[in-house]
Simulated scan of single mutants.
Amino acid sequence: MNKRDLLRVTGACAAAAVLMPAWAQAQDFPPKKNVTIVVGFAAGGAADTAARIIGKKLGENLGVPVVIDNRPGAGGNIAHQYAAQGPADGSVILFGSVGPLTIAPHLMKVPYDPAKDLAPITMGVNFPNVLVVHSGLGIKTFAEFVAYAKKNPGKLDYASTGPGSAAHMAGELLDDMAKISTTHIPYKGGAPALQDLLGGRVAAYYSTLSTALPHIESGRLIPLASTGPQRLPALPKVPTIAESGYPGYSATNWYAFVASSKVPKPVLERWNTELVKVLKAPEVVKELDVHGLTPQPGTREALAQEIARESATWGRVIRERKITLQ
């Protein structure tokens, strides 16, 4: 064998060595160790609830343990950074949220790039929030909420699941459209935000339906309006903000599955297949619906487009309103 042939063979072997890990991992699916779904918020909120419903069915389908790993803090950004630095074998996937994926990068310096460090798998669930207030506040309608805020600038505060979260931006958008000034109070998830709301330590909360509904039914919380384009089926008498004098208002929330961009494409495609199957399962759809969560399974490409579209939208709102984290 001459030197030229030796170099050709050596180069082919090197190329095969580079491709082998992706091929091998695609064949070895699911990963032999536990599968971990990382959630960026505390246990008890909508993200945690949905992840556990989906994770249970996923484990049954794959025949492997599925562990929910709650890593709350910084509006979900801690979990997103953790997932971005996760292993390349696909054993760790993230139930990512609209805030860290499309909003937070426009508000703060985050230690990851959603477009480069996290790879899309599929949209998970979509849902509006509902603006609720403590029953002891004395406000019974959305019109009264806006009137009080106009008369008392800065005195009405509202909870969110963190800076740059969908709940945070829902409040910013209402402040902008209604020309009012409310005070944003960030928390590490829906459960601690709800705890302070029920305790009267914060006046309002742009809550998920699953978090607020039991306390609405008990009378401890008053629902004023929902943030989506249509009324919530579980609360048909509660108007949307859009129909309450602010047409065009819409601030929906969603959670989507992503993973570290180090995970090979064949593994990401397999995760898409398995997760879409779970999200379409009738028993999963039914259980999610009980919590006001609508499954939105789709392609990896569709999720990438949605992330890019929402990032552009919220980036523009943040720039035009000069929103900063104080």
Rank of each mutant, 00 (worst) to 15 (best):
M1H: 10
D5H: 07
L6D: 02
R8H: 11
R8Y: 12
T10Y: 12
A12S: 14
A16H: 07
A17R: 11
W23N: 02
W23S: 05
A24H: 15
Q25D: 09
P30Y: 12
P30E: 11
P31Y: 14
K32Q: 14
K32S: 14
T36H: 15
T36V: 15
I37C: 11
I37D: 07
A42Q: 15
G44V: 12
A47N: 13
A47C: 14
K56E: 15
L62E: 09
V66H: 13
V67K: 14
I68T: 15
I68F: 13
D69Y: 14
A74S: 11
I78A: 04
A79C: 06
H80C: 04
Q81W: 08
G86I: 04
G86T: 05
V92P: 01
G96V: 02
V98A: 00
L107G: 02
L107A: 04
M108L: 12
M108I: 10
K109E: 12
V110Q: 02
V110K: 00
D113F: 11
D113R: 10
K116D: 05
L118K: 02
P120M: 03
I121H: 01
I121W: 01
M123D: 00
N126H: 05
F127W: 05
N129V: 04
V133N: 03
V133I: 14
H134N: 14
S135C: 02
S135P: 00
S135W: 03
I139F: 06
K140I: 01
A147N: 05
K150L: 09
G154I: 10
K155V: 13
Y158G: 02
T161F: 04
P163F: 13
P163A: 10
G164A: 08
G164S: 09
A166K: 00
A166M: 08
A166T: 11
M169H: 08
M169V: 08
G171N: 06
E172V: 14
D176E: 13
M177N: 02
M177A: 09
S181L: 08
S181D: 10
T183A: 12
H184N: 11
I185G: 00
P186K: 09
G190K: 04
A191Y: 07
A193W: 06
D196M: 07
L197S: 03
L197A: 03
G199Q: 05
G200L: 11
R201D: 08
R201V: 07
V202M: 03
T208C: 08
T211L: 10
T211I: 06
A212L: 06
P214R: 03
P214M: 03
P214N: 02
S218M: 04
L224I: 08
A225E: 05
G228Y: 10
R231H: 04
A234D: 07
K237L: 09
G245Y: 12
G245F: 13
P247L: 08
S250N: 12
A251F: 06
T252K: 04
T252C: 03
W254Q: 01
W254S: 01
V258S: 03
P264Y: 07
V267M: 06
E269G: 05
E269C: 06
R270N: 15
W271K: 03
W271C: 03
N272R: 15
K277H: 15
P282G: 09
V284L: 01
V284E: 00
V285K: 07
K286N: 09
K286Q: 11
K286W: 02
H291L: 02
T299C: 12
R300D: 04
E301Y: 09
A304M: 04
E306S: 03
A312W: 06
T313E: 08
W314F: 15
R316K: 14
E320C: 13
E320S: 14
Q326L: 14
Q326I: 13
